[in-house]
Design a protein around this nucleic acid. Structure first.
Lengths: 143, 143
DNA sequence: GTAAAATTTGAAGTACACTTCAAGTCAAGG
DNA sequence: CCTTGACTTGAAGTGTACTTCAAATTTTAC
């Protein structure tokens, strides 16, 4: 298994070197081994970077991803713990998806009604997703 | 139509006063009139605050929302701009949802296979959802 | 009339996720 | 051997969306 420099990893993964160093610095990636202080990676790093990318795009913060990864590490915790966390994350993902679907619905409604003023669109389509507005409206309507 | 202090607006809208000032400062809300330097709002502010809230929840940044609002400048064909932006944002949301579904799939696969090492899970379940990794793979494969 | 509460301003601070910089070290080619 | 490019580090800078602070002023309540 050949060892790669940070530059090689960066090129192949399409991630800046600064990002890789940053992830390592905050402990999101394990500290890589060094040859004369220079980092050496094996190809497993691509899996990690891919996972981080996916998790981020799914709406997770780096801190959350870190917790999620800890659950994967058999040295830190048993497999049971990772499974518990994975299940918890699944619930969160479902929430995220539901929220995104809500936004989508809202925008689609807005497009469908073809209204000329965003105020109209939003008032009609967003109501179910907005609690603050409901409060404000009901109060301001008795005037 | 009674005039409200910033505090009254804040309480009724469920938004901190600092946020209202901030929105006004960046021009997201029109500069409110003053009585002895103190802001006075009429109830229309609730609509605007609600709009901002909704647009944010729909995934727009404040800068985008500003453009969206300015899009109702009659010079710039308002409805068109809003519709264009909405469509653009829909694409982004679809991407987000796809990613989240990928993440979900990944975690579900991970749970099903009961693997103890993230490397295995990632290698098996993450590959289809990551473009950067695919690129990296194909590049590194001809070496 | 006075004390407390609310509001004012600009400026600085916060969190997240990085990027950029400076200044030095290391490695590879001619 | 020497230049060039890659890499090292810590520190500071960036953008988004606010929040917090300080010190002064205004309003409200008693």
């Amino acid at each position: 298994m050949q060892e790669l420099s940070i530059g090689a990893v960066a090129r192949q993964a399409g991630v800046p070197t600064s990002t890789i160093r940053y992830y390592e610095r905050i402990g999101l990636l394990p500290r890589s081994k060094r040859v004369n202080k220079h980092r050496r990676f094996d190809s497993s790093v691509f899996g990690w970077l891919a996972l981080i990318d996916i998790a981020q795009k799914a709406g997770f913060t780096l801190a959350e991803i870190q917790v999620l990864f800890q659950g994967f590490d058999p040295q830190v915790t048993p497999a049971e713990r990772w499974q518990t966390m994975a299940r918890q994350k699944l619930i969160e993902i479902d929430t995220l998806i539901a929220r995104a679907e809500g936004m989508k619905q809202m925008l689609e409604n807005g497009l469908r009604c073809g209204c000329l003023r965003i105020e109209d669109c939003v008032a009609i389509s967003a109501a179910p997703y907005n609690s603050r507005m409901d409060e404000a409206k009901s109060r301001s309507e008795n005037e």
